[in-house]
């Protein structure tokens, strides 16, 4: 297993470098010049100022040289300097990463738990009213845009009922500590995590339901039944476990999409994560910061995928760690 992990990590590093190079060129293909954005924000624009900014950003150097400097930095774990924010990129991302991890992992847990639970019930009671109700419920959250669910949540739970805070990570100025602080953060987390989680829950529900119905028809389930095992044991131990493989695959793929969804969720709920950092960096053409966020997101996706491969083995021992 160790050699499998080592090989996957090595491959991951190569993929990461390829992503860095690709992204480096991709973001420069987008129209918009960081120096002009900054000059525009300053409400003034003269040749000297724009030239100074280009020199500061290193944009006056030839593109291959810029790429070389950047890749050299990444290899030595230096993600560069955001001249717009006047701070090292790693520091900026480090400040925001915990909030994004908290949000995405909570949303991930919500979506996976509820998705598998609802999917199992829907499959167990396939063709009944409960099945239809679960499917409709899941599809509603899948069909509605995340920002809309977010705004409606704010309207209902913050403005009308005043149950939950409408924005932020914590109550500003409350200076809470310990358990009180954790409760405060949890209250702020509920709406963004549910918004993001419910969207992805739908796919897990559908996937679990479909997969379980398929497995249910297989011979070994009939054998289990013939052996006289109880329905609950058959569902849990034989059907669900075998039906989970495609769900695990989907969860691995979703790890990247979750971060994409977090951009919108973080913006609407003013959640101070890297999704928003990425969005602001994109609008301002803050190349180094944008590339830095891409590197971190790519590393996260690769890590999630590695975890997915390891979970495969747990779910289905027949799968071997092929090199």
């Amino acid at each position: 297993m160790l050699s499998f992990v080592a090989q996957r990590v090595l491959k991951g590093v190569i993929v990461l470098l390829a992503i860095v190079v690709l992204n480096f060129f991709l973001i420069r293909l987008a129209p918009g010049d960081p120096a002009i954005v900054m000059a525009g924000e300053a409400g003034a624009s003269d040749q000297v100022f724009v030239k100074q900014l280009r020199e500061k950003f290193g944009l006056d150097k030839p593109l291959p040289e810029q790429l070389f400097i950047y890749v050299k930095g990444v290899v030595t774990l230096d993600l560069g300097f955001s001249f717009r924010q006047q701070a090292p990129v790693a520091k900026l991302i480090g400040e925001r990463l915990p909030a994004t991890l908290l949000l995405t992992l909570t949303a991930f847990a919500i979506s996976l738990t509820l998705g598998i639970l609802f999917g199992t019930f829907a499959a167990r009671f396939a063709g009944t009213f409960l099945d239809t109700a679960i499917t409709v419920f899941a599809l509603i959250f899948y069909a509605m845009p995340i920002f809309w669910v977010a705004l409606m949540g704010i309207l209902l739970f913050s403005v009308t009922m005043d149950w939950l805070p409408s924005f932020g990570y914590e109550t500003v100025g409350a200076n809470l500590t310990g358990l009180a602080h954790s409760v405060d953060v949890a209250k702020h987390l509920i709406m963004p995590a549910m918004t993001l989680g419910l969207f992805f829950m739908a796919t897990y529900t559908r996937m679990t339901r479909a997969s379980m119905l398929e497995v249910k028809r297989l011979d070994f389930v009939k054998t289990a039944r013939a052996k006289g095992l109880s329905d609950a044991v058959i569902q849990r131990r034989h059907v669900l476990r075998n039906a989970l493989l495609p769900v695990v695959t989907l969860a691995g793929v979703h790890s990247g999409t979750l971060i994409g969804g977090a951009v919108i969720t973080e913006t609407v709920f003013a959640w101070p994560g890297i999704g928003r950092l990425m969005y602001d960096a994109l609008l301002q053409r803050d190349y180094n910061l944008l590339l830095g966020v891409f590197v971190i997101c790519s590393a996260m996706v690769l890590t999630f995928n590695l975890i997915t491969d390891l979970v495969y083995r747990l779910v289905d021992p027949r799968i071997e760690y092929a090199a």
């Binding site: 409408s166 924005f167 500003v172 913006t267 003013a270 969005y279 602001d280």
Partner: peptide, 22 residues
């Protein structure tokens, strides 16, 4: 005594923050 500048990126959320007294 103090001034807090709250960073709220979405325009609708800023309106709500005012409406809810935050």
């Amino acid at each position: 005594d103090e001034v807090y500048w709250q960073i709220i990126p979405d325009a609708a959320a800023r309106s709500v923050a005012y409406e809810t007294g935050k």
